Measured scan of single mutants.
Amino acid sequence: VSEWTEYKTADGKTYYYNNRTWESTWEKPQ
């Protein structure tokens, strides 16, 4: 699942961004 990158927002929430599909999600990808 290497295309997903984990980021943190300014208020400390974690989200995930897909470099291949430009998708972002709050849930941890499978």
Rank of each mutant, 00 (worst) to 15 (best):
A10D: 08
E6A: 06
G12S: 00
T25W: 13
W26P: 09
N19Q: 11
G12R: 00
R20I: 15
W4G: 01
D11L: 05
E6I: 04
R20K: 14
W4M: 03
T21E: 05
P29I: 05
T14F: 09
V1F: 15
Y16W: 15
W22E: 15
T14C: 00
K8P: 02
Q30K: 10
R20Y: 14
T9K: 03
Y7I: 12
E3A: 08
K13Q: 12
Y7Q: 08
Y16P: 02
N19Y: 07
S2D: 13
A10R: 07
E23Y: 06
S2A: 13
K8G: 02
W4P: 01
R20A: 14
T25H: 06
S24V: 15
N18I: 00
S2N: 10
P29L: 03
K28I: 11
P29H: 05
Y17W: 13
W22P: 03
K8V: 14
T9H: 03
W4K: 00
E23P: 01
V1R: 12
E27Q: 10
Y7H: 12
W26T: 12
T25M: 12
E6Q: 06
Q30G: 12
W22M: 15
G12L: 00
T25G: 08
R20G: 13
Y16Q: 05
T21N: 06
T5N: 05
D11I: 03
Y16S: 01
S2R: 07
T5A: 10
T21H: 05
Y7K: 13
E6N: 00
S2G: 13
T21L: 05
T9N: 06
S24D: 08
V1L: 13
W22F: 15
W26N: 07
V1Q: 14
V1N: 13
W26F: 15
D11G: 09
W22R: 15
Y16H: 01
N18V: 02
K13S: 05
E6T: 03
D11Q: 07
K28W: 09
N18L: 01
S24Q: 11
D11V: 01
N18P: 03
K13P: 00
Y15V: 09
E27M: 04
S2Q: 11
W4N: 00
Q30E: 14
W4F: 04
A10W: 08
E3F: 07
W4L: 02
W26R: 03
Y7E: 09
Y17P: 06
W22D: 15
S24L: 14
W26Y: 13
E23A: 02
E27W: 08
T14N: 05
Y17V: 15
S2F: 10
S2L: 09
W4A: 00
Y16A: 00
K28Y: 09
R20S: 14
E23G: 01
K13A: 06
W4H: 01
E27D: 12
A10G: 07
Q30V: 14
Y15I: 11
A10H: 11
T21A: 03
W26D: 12
E6P: 03
N19L: 10
N19S: 12
Y17F: 14
K13W: 06
V1A: 13
P29D: 05
Y17A: 03
Y17N: 03
P29V: 04
Y7V: 11
W26K: 04
T5K: 08
V1Y: 15
Y17I: 15
T14A: 05
E3N: 04
E27F: 06
P29K: 03
K13M: 08
E3D: 12
T14P: 08
N19T: 13
K28F: 09
T5R: 08
Q30Y: 09
V1D: 12
N18W: 02
P29Q: 04
W4R: 02
E23N: 02
D11A: 05
W26S: 10
S2E: 13
T9M: 04
K13D: 11
T5E: 10
Q30F: 11
T5F: 11
G12V: 00
E23F: 03
E27N: 07
S2K: 08
E3G: 10
R20P: 07
V1K: 11
S24H: 13
G12Q: 01
G12K: 00
K8F: 10
T9R: 03
T5G: 07
E23T: 05
T9A: 07
K28M: 07
N19E: 15
R20F: 15
K28G: 06
W26M: 12
E3R: 02
A10T: 07
D11R: 02
Q30D: 14
E23R: 00
Q30N: 13
E23W: 04
N18D: 04
Y7M: 14
K8S: 07
W26I: 09
P29G: 08
Y16T: 00
T25R: 09
N18M: 01
T21V: 02
E23S: 01
D11W: 09
K28N: 10
E27T: 09
K8Y: 09
S24G: 12
P29E: 03
T9L: 06
A10K: 09
S24T: 15
K8L: 12
W4E: 01
V1W: 13
T9I: 02
K13L: 10
T21Y: 06
Y17L: 10
Y17D: 01
K13H: 09
G12D: 04
K28S: 11
Q30M: 13
W4D: 02
W4V: 03
S24N: 05
K13E: 11
T14K: 08
K8M: 12
Y16R: 00
Y17G: 04
G12T: 00
T21I: 05
A10L: 08
G12E: 01
K28T: 07
S24W: 15
K13F: 08
T25S: 13
K28V: 11
Y17T: 07
V1M: 13
W22T: 14
T5W: 09
E6K: 03
Q30C: 14
W4T: 01
G12N: 06
T5L: 10
Y15E: 05
E6L: 02
